[in-house]
């Protein structure tokens, strides 16, 4: 069954973004370096005898992922700015929604790559068992990430041409990242401690609701950020 045109165009945009990213490589490497540094900072700044790693792990995980996502979000529209190609996208017979979806998909894949590398590192450094809980953990991370990235992609379209763009984006984004961050952290804690799934389903539902609402809002509002 042929995909609706909007999705196909979105995929072309996303594929192009990812191809550029793979060639450039600087983005993913910096993000990875950042994650390692943050994990090291957390590790050396805590007193291992006072606080067991399992208690801190959810907070460390989510702070790291939140900040890594924020760094990653600048790249989507920065790419177009650097290549001066954005008008081309607007001129093409594709909907603005496709542009947003394409950027969203590319951002999600980019952040997911960081998470795929960062979460095992966290498990390694802090000696936290994650394999028995892998399914629900991946679900939690995925849901929270969609929330961050949906709003972040929308905002980065606006901040990319301002001065201090790299500073303004986190400032705008933080209030929007804190609720999903909280719910995800509250889900991760009991999850890693081996509590039953029923304990955390409520948080997952909140994350899903947040995602649905904000992806919808972003889809509706994105054209306003690019149309003159």
């Amino acid at each position: 069954m042929p995909l609706p045109e909007a999705v196909r165009h979105a995929w072309y945009v996303a594929r192009k973004d990812l191809r550029v990213e793979v060639r450039a490589r600087t983005g993913i490497l910096s993000a990875l370096a950042f994650v390692i540094l943050v994990l090291l900072a957390f590790n050396f700044s805590r007193d291992p005898t006072a606080v067991p790693a399992i208690d801190l792990a959810p907070s460390i995980l989510w702070v790291t992922l939140t900040f890594a996502s924020m760094l990653a979000l600048n790249r989507a529209f920065q790419l177009e700015l650097e290549n001066q190609a954005f008008d081309g996208l607007l001129l093409a017979p594709i909907s603005r929604t496709s542009i947003y979806l394409g950027k969203l998909i590319a951002n999600l894949i980019f952040v997911a790559t960081i998470e795929l590398l960062g979460v095992p590192l966290l498990a390694l450094f802090f000696n936290v068992r994650i394999l028995p809980f892998l399914g629900p953990l991946v679900a939690t991370i995925a849901l929270a990430t969609i929330g961050f990235v949906a709003v972040g992609t929308l905002f980065s379209a606006m901040t990319v041409r301002t001065r201090f763009a790299e500073l303004l984006l986190p400032v705008l984004l933080l209030p929007f990242m804190i609720p999903p961050l909280m719910w995800a952290a509250w889900a991760t804690g009991p999850l890693l401690a081996g509590r039953p799934l029923s304990d955390i389903v409520g948080w997952l539902k909140m994350l899903a609701a947040y995602d649905i609402v904000f992806v919808g809002v972003a889809l509706v509002l994105f054209p306003a950020t690019v149309n003159e």
Binding site: L154, F155, L168, L172, V217, L221, A224, T225
Partner: peptide, 29 residues
């Protein structure tokens, strides 16, 4: 955040549009 965004955008048309986008997101949050 809203006021900083307004301050950072020079073009009045873009400023109003961007602020509106952020304002709506804030209300939804």
């Amino acid at each position: 955040g809203y006021l900083l965004l307004r301050g950072a955008v020079a073009d009045p048309g873009a400023r109003a549009r961007y602020a509106a986008v952020l304002g709506i997101c804030g209300m939804v949050l």
